[in-house]
Design a protein around this nucleic acid. Structure first.
Lengths: 343, 343
DNA sequence: CATAAAATGAGGTACGCACCTCAGAAATCC
DNA sequence: GGATTTCTGAGGTGCGTACCTCATTTTATG
């Protein structure tokens, strides 16, 4: 009835504690036959290793690196803040976290950072960086070296990462489309989409989802050509202002990525921000204030606290070789309006 | 640099291990003066008890009771399901949970259940039940007996409960109002509110929030007198059907509590469900399907997984006498549309 | 000041596990 | 069948904590 321990397994399998230990920890010196006996006992008794006792005995720490974009992104800042909080809370749980800042626009910077993470100093890595062939290779190398790797916010499929912690961007785009269509209402008009770059996988997926919903359910709205800022706020602001003034029947603006500051600035300058339905991504101090001021109508976001905690849980589980609790690790797409802003 | 242990504290405070232990575990036989010295050492070294090692040594289980409404509420069912999953995941963490079903409409049933929970068999209790004087007293008794108590979903203020795990219902109502106003659009019309009973604290608060937002921002919409089902589905269905047919300019329906099945049934029968903006609470199989079928426009919900996990974390923290990590325990108000339904 | 009472120290055991050593048993090889 | 190699058992130690006992010191009490 009580939780089975290694002693119970030893008894059940008719072997000694030492042998159970060898099997459980993959140490050599056990006949295949005996290994089977032990594993059978584990299964039949439903033994699960007490990871806390194990860590206590092993006196290890989990050493994780979080590779995050450097620079002044409010989203990354809130992410870092959440990470800091989580670290404080997890300190008791033998988790050591190091933040590694990288210049995400430069794949070499990312690769250099990843290559600097050896299995000697780290047990796992969480990476938030755009998908490039170089990064994929570097991740594969980390995996090979025995590190656990999770992709954070932005997925790195085919890189061999253990897990992706983040939202489904197709659904995020569809959600934005749903809200846009409903908020704008039945009157025909135009919708503007802005992004940093249409090359990133996230933007492509969000755009795809948005388009799907618009054509399925709101075809009285016309989508204008996408505005790409390419990381240049001034450029973004200028083009946006021009577009806002050029289309008197513009009804809504959907911003798919970072760069909400120049967006809001331009819309304000155009004098039309109040009448437009503005939907952006990621809840940050800026977008939070935007909601309060009725300048932003909806924010589609992912809870940064959940992101970092999920990343840590998954990394720990991978290190322990334990199955993850899927339902808990699914990051939801949050819709935030003025009224349900978290307090 | 390394994590301080009880040994470090003993050395720092200039006392023996036994004394540190007495202080940390509140055992008697230590002079006030000495207690202070130990506590100072704890503070200055930043000692945090390793709860896992502690539990290992204490070889206790956390024994929690979840007092939940009996009967066929889909919301409670999903809550129970989440509880079951959480139990499976927490089994490794020495948590034992017992579900105690009660007839919530009968305060005596609740009180009887609560009184049956002795400190001998339980360390903490999570309660989901309406607030009545009898229940308040029973909770106070539990606290007195040394149990940790959290109110779940529905708060029990002034009962002395340690914590409330659930959403802010005023904000939930405001959020519903915000969505209703935006989804319905600029055309004047009427809005219907239905609930089980306007006597429950939750309904009152949601209604208050909804009204606030409607009068602040959407005063072209008129709110019809509230329909109360009083737990009678047939009655609800009949009144609702009548109301839906009596007001051709009805634009939206807001359901504040349980009883979504007769609601949707009546609206379907009225033939107007597609044109109405329907906003309900709690994501269940029924409302999930309603979103998919375009019968329900938005669901305002709280994540049951978070609810139970938060309740467990809080109960554990209270039992350990450890501070809770506020940010993680704040239950958000989730807005679910067809497009961001969790997969 | 003697004595009882309270406070403290020293030390042990246990929890479930990892990791180590060494001796002895079993299997394999020539 | 003896020598060698491969397995296995018995046992110990330590991780950070709880909880227990028993002696000893300190403090309060009459």
């Amino acid at each position: 009835m009580a939780k089975p321990t290694v002693h119970d397994i030893a008894r059940e399998a008719g072997v000694s504690l030492a042998t159970v230990d060898r099997v459980l920890n993959g140490r050599p010196g056990v006949r295949a036959n005996t290994i089977e006996r032990v594993n059978d006992a584990v299964r039949s008794l439903g033994y699960v290793r007490d990871t806390y006792a194990a860590n206590l005995a092993r006196k290890t720490q989990y050493r994780f690196a979080f590779v995050l974009p450097d620079g002044d992104s409010q989203f990354v800042d809130t992410l870092k803040l959440a990470l800091k909080e989580a670290m404080a809370a997890q300190l008791a749980d033998r988790v050591f976290v190091k933040v590694v800042p990288v210049q995400v626009q430069d794949p070499h910077s990312v690769v250099r950072a990843l290559n600097s993470l050896s299995a000697e100093h780290y047990d796992g890595v969480a990476i938030m960086a755009p998908e490039t062939p170089q990064v994929r290779d570097a991740v594969a190398r980390l995996k090979e070296a025995g590190l656990s790797v999770v992709a954070l916010v932005s997925d790195l499929p085919t890189s061999g990462r253990d897990h992706f912690v983040g939202i489904n961007n197709l659904s995020a785009g569809r959600t934005a489309g749903d809200l846009m269509g409903r908020f704008v209402g039945a009157i025909p008009g135009k919708v503007l989409i802005v992004t940093n770059s249409m090359l990133s996988r996230d933007s492509i997926e969000r755009r795809l989802g948005f388009d799907e919903v618009m054509s399925e359910r709101f075809d009285h709205l016309t989508i204008l050509p996408t505005i790409e800022s390419r990381g240049d706020p001034a450029r973004m602001e200028a083009i946006l202002l021009k577009a806002a003034l050029a289309h008197p029947d513009l009804r809504g603006v959907y911003s798919m990525g970072p760069g909400n500051r120049p967006l809001i600035g331009a819309l304000r300058r155009s004098g039309r921000i109040a009448e437009l339905t503005v939907i952006v991504h990621e809840l940050t101090p800026l977008t939070h204030q935007g909601l309060i001021d009725y300048e932003v109508d909806a924010v589609i976001t992912q809870n940064v606290g959940h992101l970092v905690r999920s990343a840590m849980r998954v990394l720990r589980a991978k290190c322990d070789g334990v199955a993850i609790y899927e339902a808990q690790e699914r990051i939801r797409i949050d819709i935030v309006l003025k009224e349900n802003l978290p307090t």
